[in-house]
Design a protein around this nucleic acid. Structure first.
Lengths: 220, 220
DNA sequence: GTCTATAGGGGGATAGAC
DNA sequence: GTCTATCCCCCTATAGAC
């Protein structure tokens, strides 16, 4: 089962098939765009910078992607997919318990975001402006409703193993505990003189701590 | 004791004194700038939009603040002050216990951010780009080190009333639990069809819940 | 497909009248 | 202090040669 959505690159969708071994140009541009957009956001990004980063000419960017806007939408959609994918996979897995799902989400997300620390802030701040179009293209909502996680969670509430508060608290707590440190990273750096190494140690600790915290937090 | 810093508006600092009753122009521009900057961030904001929002002409904006950049720095600094002020006041208060401080921070911050929901994301995303200059102008670090909160926290650790993990976990958990829902708000809206009223209810619940959670989380 | 050159427009800032 | 008019740069996008 592929969890990736069928998005199209428009112009290129057909041509892509006809090429032999294409780790070039189009992919180079997308990769550069990802880097710059993630770091600066849409408004602060200059297409010239993407072109330079990709080692190609500015005109070529428009040749492949028509406009900055369209290129951005592709990057945004892929980034969101990549981010939600982890959660979906873990939550759909019928063979793990609720506790194991929490452990896995904490571990996998912290690993993911240690690798690409700009992603949470990128997604959250870009969603603020762009209309909610991205979500209509991502069937996360439907997937989550039917997920193994949801079933287990509702069972746990009925069996009084979990406090009977709005489930949104659960999601907010879990994701907040995982993701917030990366969003607040710049503040920590400037404020508390926290270096990279120390931050990584702290986040490694949290892989273990968050599941424990979540358990005590959600106890009835 | 004033916790506000002596920042200057440059050109205007002197003139301000000479005016009689000035809730006008300069303040109108700043107010408009606050609104637009908070909502869109520096890069996406157009000075023309600020001018329109303020009901004045674009030229006047530059007359008062010299440039978009300078205006932004004033807004940014004031916003950060306003935000940290709450924490500082609560944490400096020698007459409250550690538990009471947590209760007060949760309650006051949630109130503050319900009023101005864009602030957390604004601060966090704008810090990403702008160099850490803003922090050198804010003596938060020094204030916090000497605060009543820090003393009480260290005592609690020594008396084994609080788990002996890096104190940063405490700060990250507290602020994450409070602030993250507002950062993730757009996602909730699009994803879970969560309306304003329901969100407020959830946040009211969290005023009570967060102190409880923090207590269980930080237990040894 | 990839480049150079350039069109076209938006946005920040200023000149100068009132 | 406040406005209108305008400058000018920078950025996106395209035309057209190779």
């Amino acid at each position: 089962m592929s969890l990736y959505l069928p998005y199209t690159v428009g112009l290129m969708a057909a041509k892509k098939e006809n090429r032999k071994l294409d780790r070039s140009t189009e992919e180079k541009i997308k990769s550069a765009a990802r880097t710059v957009f993630h770091k600066k956001g849409f408004a602060a990004t200059r297409t010239r910078e993407i072109a330079e980063e990709a080692g190609i000419n500015l005109a070529l960017l428009n040749y492949y992607f028509r406009s900055k806007e369209k290129l951005f939408q592709i990057i945004m959609l892929e980034t969101m997919q990549g981010f939600y994918q982890t959660m979906i996979i873990v939550f759909m897995d019928g063979s793990t318990t609720l506790e194991e799902k929490i452990e896995q989400v904490a571990e996998k997300y912290i690993d993911l975001v240690v690798e690409q620390p700009e992603i949470p802030l990128f997604i959250l701040s870009e969603i603020r402006n762009s209309s909610g179009d991205f979500f209509t293209k991502l069937p996360i909502n439907e997937l989550l409703k039917k997920s193994s996680f949801m079933q287990q969670f509702q069972e746990a509430v009925q069996q009084k193993k979990v406090a009977d508060v709005h489930p949104i608290h659960f999601v907010l707590n879990l994701m907040g505990l995982i993701v917030f440190p990366f969003i607040a990273r710049p503040v920590l750096t400037h404020l508390g003189e926290m270096a990279d190494a120390q931050f990584r140690t702290v986040m490694e600790e949290r892989k273990k701590l968050i599941p424990v915290w979540m358990k005590t937090i959600m106890a009835p």
